Amino acid sequence: MTGKSEWPSSLDDSELDELDRYLRAHTGEDDLLLDGVHGLLSALAVGPLLVLPSEWLPEVLHEPFADENEGNRVLELLAKLNDSISAELDVDAYEPILGEVELEDGVMLSAAGWCEGFSRGIDLRAGVWESRLSEDPQLMELLGPVMALAVDEGVLSADAEFEKLSDEEYDSCLAQVSAVLVSVNQYWQAKPVTEAEVEAMALQLPSDTNKDNSNPPRQRSGHWVH
Results as ranks from 00 to 15, higher is better:
1 M>S: 02
3 G>P: 08
4 K>V: 15
5 S>W: 12
9 S>T: 00
12 D>Y: 04
12 D>A: 00
13 D>Q: 09
17 D>S: 12
18 E>M: 13
19 L>H: 04
20 D>N: 03
20 D>W: 12
21 R>N: 10
24 R>W: 13
25 A>I: 00
26 H>C: 07
26 H>T: 13
30 D>H: 13
33 L>H: 10
34 L>T: 09
34 L>P: 07
35 D>A: 14
38 H>Y: 04
42 S>G: 13
42 S>C: 10
44 L>N: 10
44 L>D: 07
48 P>R: 01
49 L>S: 03
50 L>Y: 04
50 L>K: 13
53 P>W: 08
54 S>Q: 12
54 S>P: 02
57 L>E: 01
58 P>G: 13
59 E>G: 05
60 V>G: 03
61 L>D: 03
62 H>C: 03
62 H>I: 04
63 E>H: 15
68 E>A: 15
73 R>H: 14
74 V>I: 14
77 L>R: 02
79 A>C: 05
81 L>F: 10
81 L>E: 00
83 D>K: 14
86 S>E: 13
86 S>Q: 15
88 E>P: 05
89 L>P: 06
89 L>M: 10
89 L>S: 09
91 V>Q: 05
91 V>I: 13
92 D>K: 12
93 A>L: 03
94 Y>S: 07
98 L>P: 11
98 L>F: 08
101 V>G: 05
107 V>Q: 03
108 M>Y: 02
110 S>P: 04
113 G>V: 03
113 G>H: 08
114 W>E: 05
115 C>Q: 03
118 F>W: 01
119 S>D: 02
128 V>P: 09
130 E>D: 00
131 S>V: 01
135 E>Q: 11
135 E>A: 09
141 E>V: 12
143 L>Y: 07
144 G>W: 13
146 V>E: 10
149 L>D: 11
149 L>I: 07
149 L>N: 05
150 A>T: 08
150 A>Q: 05
151 V>I: 14
152 D>A: 09
154 G>A: 12
155 V>L: 07
156 L>H: 01
160 A>V: 13
162 F>K: 10
164 K>G: 08
169 E>C: 12
170 Y>T: 08
173 C>N: 10
176 Q>N: 02
178 S>K: 14
179 A>Y: 00
180 V>W: 05
180 V>P: 05
181 L>K: 02
182 V>P: 01
182 V>R: 15
183 S>R: 14
185 N>V: 00
186 Q>G: 15
186 Q>Y: 02
187 Y>I: 01
187 Y>Q: 08
188 W>C: 10
188 W>N: 09
189 Q>M: 15
191 K>R: 14
191 K>T: 04
194 T>P: 07
198 V>M: 13
199 E>P: 05
200 A>C: 08
200 A>Y: 06
202 A>W: 01
203 L>D: 01
203 L>Q: 09
207 S>C: 08
207 S>T: 06
211 K>S: 12
214 S>Q: 11
214 S>W: 01
218 R>G: 15
218 R>P: 09
221 S>I: 06
